[in-house]
Amino acid sequence: MSTGHVLMGLLSTRERHGYDLKKDHDERFPAARPLAFGQVYATLERLRKKGHVEAVEIERVEGPDRTVYRLTGDGRAALAEWLSEVEKPSPFVSNPLATKATIALLVADEATAADYLRRQRDAHLARMREYTRLKTDPQASIAEVLGADYAIAHLDADLRWLDTALDRIAALDRSLASSPPPTPDDKPLKDFS
């Protein structure tokens, strides 16, 4: 996600200064990390050097001077190009849930891994309830509803994985329970070395 493109998108509706942009961003995207002022001003300066925005005036009110920015024609073209590009689907290779469940199987047993997965499931569903309440609140803005939909869809994907993982571990548990007792020559079940 490019902060520059997001700021240009906000500037496309009207010219304004960095403070306003930060406030507007944080209100419209409550699920996102709030922008730092330094990040906003650094990004605007970068966009100005590329010719995507231009400073139109300096507002002198109480407090520090504020530079008002406007989106240029080049900026509008760059924004249109960005909007036409698809985002690369995340590979999801780094999954702390799967890592933790695997480590639980390694250092403990199926029951420990399943217990962790159940508690993780509860935590995910509790978060999903929060987003569901947020998006069904009649006062919710469209940005809040869209953000909540996105979060719910991702939590739902995790929950489906958690259910499958619990099924797999239950199947593993059953297969171990039904296997014959180890003979002295057998390797220990937990020998992952």
Binding site: H124, L125, M128, R129, T132, L155, R160
Partner: peptide, 11 residues
């Protein structure tokens, strides 16, 4: 469906 279960108070 977990997205439906999320309308509940408890599961």
């Amino acid at each position: 469906d977990a997205t439906v279960a999320a309308y509940g108070d408890r599961e």
